[in-house]
Design a protein around this nucleic acid. Structure first.
Lengths: 221, 221
DNA sequence: GTCTATAATCAGATAGAC
DNA sequence: GTCTATCTGATTATAGAC
């Protein structure tokens, strides 16, 4: 965006296991959450990490590369959280909690804004977003099947989309100080989660995915 | 964010009616939509407007003031569009169209991201957002009342919130190249709009708000 | 009322020192 | 393998010329 253009130099880079690399990523992530992507400059990242600005370019070459690494690290973290949620006894509620996490939403928000005008970031964000959607859809389909409830007139992908969009916008607007419709939206979401998860528990009274997994692990041992 | 700090100087400013002022606002808006808020710098705005960078500071003093002016102008434009939508024979569909407008959404999106870390922008965006919500809710309430349909278990503010959030996220994700759940979401939204607006038309076959307004204007003359 | 010259600072990136 | 000195250009903002 500013300064010199990167013309694919063959300059050496710091190895991936270096401690300072992780320190710089942590600093960049915190900066991004607190002050937005525009605040993530080599100088400010380095200052927060207690290092020299040039080290950012030593470990990541360009700022774009730093952003991409940040997205990949964040997506990996999300995959772990989502996998835990899917094993929970209330997967819908658990996924809603993830989508409502203000820390995660703030970061995702910034990345989506950044993606609007950085091609490399856009591709990575879209890929990770679609992957998350697929897993969310799978969780919803399973819960619904296990509950025996049929939502006629409501295609599952639409329900998933609305819940994800609702949770995300809710958190974003809260952080901006807005509130119209928030309480009612939250009530609807909770009602929907309870409806499905109670029906599911009534059908599978003594088994939950977590318990199942635990049983499988024990029987395999 | 960079450069000197603004310490409430008493420097003179260009008058509001000056042509160059509008030219600069147009340039800033276009830049924001196309490349994001980070691209809105005095130099780039001036370059797009065919003027000198210093003129930005002459007409707006600080970049923050330029952003605030941009929000106010945009909100005024939205008020006009929404008022037209409320007079339409299909207000729900019309409001959905507004919320799905990719140009508007791109701008709103950037402003919300900017609001995350600029207090002055945050306050203005929240204010305008809440105002829009109130008008949207009013349109929905009227349509529902006129249709005679009762959505039991669905509080109006929640329905409004979901439709607005859905439309917005849909457009944003489309621009990023995502698509999971989009078709189903769109189908649900359209179905909901048709359901209410058909019931409404069946009840008020020969009268629409636009026609009513027209009648009132004529009888007053 | 309108615009320019200029200050002070911050940015990304690289070559080269340890 | 790790880090620093340094270059070039961008950015906000003000004082003062027309």
């Amino acid at each position: 965006m500013k300064g010199r253009i990167n013309v694919s130099s063959d300059r050496r880079l710091g190895i991936e296991s270096a401690e300072n690399r992780g320190v710089l990523l942590d600093a960049a992530e915190q900066l991004m959450r607190e002050e937005g992507y525009a605040a993530v400059t080599s100088r400010r990242v380095a200052a927060k990490a207690g290092l020299k600005p040039q080290l950012v370019h030593y470990y990541f070459r360009t700022m774009d590369d730093l952003f991409l690494e940040l997205i990949r690290r964040g997506a990996e973290h999300m995959r772990v959280r989502l996998a835990r949620a899917l094993e929970s006894s209330e997967p819908l509620r658990a996924v809603w909690e993830i989508c409502s996490d203000s820390q995660i939403t703030a970061l995702t928000w910034e990345f989506m804004a950044l993606a609007n005008h950085r091609k490399s970031v856009r591709a990575e964000i879209a890929r990770q977003g679609e992957e998350f959607r697929a897993l969310h859809l799978q969780a919803l389909a399973r819960t619904l099947q296990e509950s025996g409830v049929r939502l006629k007139g409501w295609p599952l992908p639409a329900v998933m989309f609305l819940m994800e969009a609702g949770a995300r916008i809710l958190v974003i607007e809260q952080s901006l100080g807005m509130s119209t419709g928030h309480a009612e939206m939250l009530a609807v979401a909770k009602k929907y989660q309870r409806l499905l998860e109670r029906a599911r528990k009534a059908r599978k009274p003594k088994s939950s995915p977590a318990a199942d997994a635990h049983r499988r692990r024990r029987s395999a041992a």
